[in-house]
Design a protein around this nucleic acid. Structure first.
Length: 555
RNA sequence: UGGGGAGUCGCCAAGUGGUAAGGCAACGGGUUUUGAUCCCGUCAUCCGUAGGUUCGAUCCCUACCUCCUCAGCCA
């Protein structure tokens, strides 16, 4: 990061790892990031990625990337590919090859046979509705299915025939035989295999039965030698099942699951289902729309991997529910960009200024550094001419108290150039200010005028030299802090109609050949990034607003 | 009303039986040709509540309150 990086803060998981390493329980740690390839990764996943890969880095351990691809109906290669791209873009590399739960399908099947042989699993043909009834409620114990006492031999036969495709989808399942009276619903004989004739992205039509998450995850972790299996709080209730499966199978490795609280962010949503809805209903241009909280969306918006990683560090890891404001994420990105983005001037809402005492047709160029604190960023020439653009917001006919910008009769410093005085304004028939007639003080280049102080500094562009650019301005996607808080109101109701505004502005000619995804600070405006797709170097300039600069002037 | 979790500054978040880290934000001041950055300073007599144990408790015990979470052949 720019200045002082946020120091590593202890958390309960690090405490556990420290103890495991100190006691010799583990010589080194192995974590894993296990997404289901059923959507694009979002900021919440970024927190998990930074945790798992970050821990592996800090402790010189390893972190696997494993796809939990056990539900073929929702998964796709496109998603799997995007996930790999996102992890790498964030700056992490997984240990060895990408792992797939589907690579373990045969072993998973054999383990299920083992469970069945031990009398710990049985084939059930209750309908989903019946199964729900038999499961009981939070306060009432469930009751046994008639199939619960089926013989081992018959279970083995039935399970083999399930695999062989003899039964219809949904007609039967394999269940773990645990405890129908358990106060933990997950232990009331959970389904571990279901029949589903769906084309799988990797195994195609080889299988017609697929293992469930709870059964698959722990075994996958064990097969990979994972030491610390980290997941979010809602899986706390699943831990007994995770342990039950491993305790009852002939697998020596028994990873431990630890749960941390998930990230909640104000003014956005992080539910894959809802994010998918935004895409499908065309409320956004796609998963990578710059307004999306997806990693690819943030990338397109101009957020940096370092900024996002800093954010993960800042929010920390704990078990308490927490909601972080978007401004914290923006702050991290700003901090990173402050140090890394080259400065350039741009005018988003232009107002023409004619410098009456400057010679027509003359151009006067001044050298300006690309970064005030880093001369190594280099410099460029900024041309000055008789006609210039200034930001319309930098001029006011009736300025409020404390105004440091331009007003009639007032003076302001043109960044890198002269002190300018506004002598008169020109209005159109409707009374709108359309042009300013100003004059410069020729003796203020590189020095302050004598006898008076000019506090304000504004950015500007020579009309003749500026380059037109499409500038996409973004605002928060939702108008309320918690769009999906009320289950009775569709979160789309709170979509911000003004979350995107496309304007035609002007930028310095030096950015003409900028590659896509090049980040700049437009002085006094904010950080902008050339669009990953629409921006065509040398042909079409398209910038996305990443974040505005902090503005303490706001009144 | 069953089970599993969590409650420390506006937002995150350490911490320990010995008298409350840090970050962000905020607020004051300084520098500044970005009202940005940067620099300096301020910012919990108090750790959900009420009791108890103790020389001493945010950390131990008891009760209570609040919030989250679980009844998919999703993950």
């Amino acid at each position: 990061m720019s200045s002082a990086p946020t120091p590593i803060v202890s958390n309960f998981i690090r405490t556990i790892i420290d103890a495991d390493l100190a006691s010799g329980k583990h010589g080194n740690i192995v974590t894993r990031f296990p997404p289901e390839p059923n959507g694009y990764l979002h900021v919440g996943h970024a927190k998990s990625i930074c945790l798992n890969f970050g821990l592996a880095q800090d402790y010189q351990g390893k972190c696997n990337l494993r796809f939990d691809d056990t539900n073929p109906e929702k998964e796709s290669q496109e998603y799997a590919q995007s996930i790999q791209n996102d992890v790498r873009w964030l700056g992490f590399e997984w240990n060895g090859e990408v792992r797939w739960a589907s690579d373990y399908f045969e072993q998973l099947y054999q383990f299920a046979v083992e469970l069945t042989e031990k009398g710990l699993a049985y084939v059930d043909d209750l309908t989903p509705e019946q199964m729900r009834e038999y499961r009981g409620t939070l306060t009432q114990a469930g009751k046994s299915s008639p199939s619960r006492e089926r013989s081992v031999a018959e279970n083995l036969d039935l399970f083999a025939r399930m695999r062989a495709g003899e039964f219809a989808d949904g007609s039967m399942v394999l269940r773990a035989k645990i405890d129908m009276a358990s106060p933990n619903m997950n232990m009331r004989d959970p389904v571990i295999y279901r029949i589903r004739r769906a084309h799988h992205i990797r195994t195609g039509d080889v299988w017609c039965i697929y293992p469930m998450y709870d059964y698959t995850h722990c075994i996958s972790d064990a097969l990979e030698g994972i030491t610390h299996s980290l997941c979010t709080l809602e899986f706390e209730d699943h831990r007994p099942l995770y342990d039950w499966v491993l305790d009852n199978l002939s697998i020596k490795c028994h990873p431990r699951q630890y749960e941390f609280s998930r990230l909640e962010l104000h003014y956005t949503i992080t539910s894959k289902r809802k994010l998918l809805q935004l895409v499908n209903d065309k409320h956004v241009s796609g998963w990578d729309d710059p307004r999306m909280p997806t990693i690819s969306g943030m990338r397109r918006r101009g957020y940096t991997p370092d900024g996002i990683r800093e954010f993960a560090k800042r929010v920390g890891i704990s078990k308490s529910n927490n909601t972080v404001d978007m401004s914290v994420l923006e702050g991290c990105v700003r901090e990173d960009l402050e140090a890394k983005a080259a400065r350039v001037m741009a005018v988003i809402k232009p107002l023409k200024v004619v410098v009456t005492n400057f010679i027509e047709g003359q151009t006067e160029s001044r050298v300006a550094g690309f970064h005030p604190q880093h001369p190594e960023f280099g410099e460029r020439l900024v041309p000055f001419a008789k006609e210039i653009w200034i930001e319309a917001d930098d001029f006011s006919v009736n300025p409020p108290e404390g105004w440091q910008r331009l007003t009639v009769g007032g003076e302001v410093r043109l960044r890198y150039s002269y002190v300018l005085r506004c002598d008169e304004l020109i209005k159109d028939a409707a009374g709108n200010v359309v042009e300013l007639r100003c004059s410069i003080d020729p003796d203020t280049l590189g020095k302050n005028p004598v006898g008076r102080k000019v506090k304000g500094v504004i950015h500007w562009l020579s009309v003749e030299h500026a380059l037109p650019a499409e500038i996409r301005l973004y605002d928060r996607l939702f108008t309320v802090p918690e769009p999906d808080a009320d289950k009775n109101v569709d979160f789309c109701t709170y979509l911000n109609p003004k979350s995107l505004a496309v304007v035609q502005g002007w930028v310095e000619a030096v950015v003409r050949e900028a590659a896509s995804e090049t980040r700049y600070q437009f002085e006094r405006l904010g950080y902008f990034c050339t669009d990953r797709y629409a921006h065509l170097p040398g042909k079409k300039i398209v910038f996305n607003l990443t974040a505005t600069l902090k503005d303490t002037w706001e009144k």
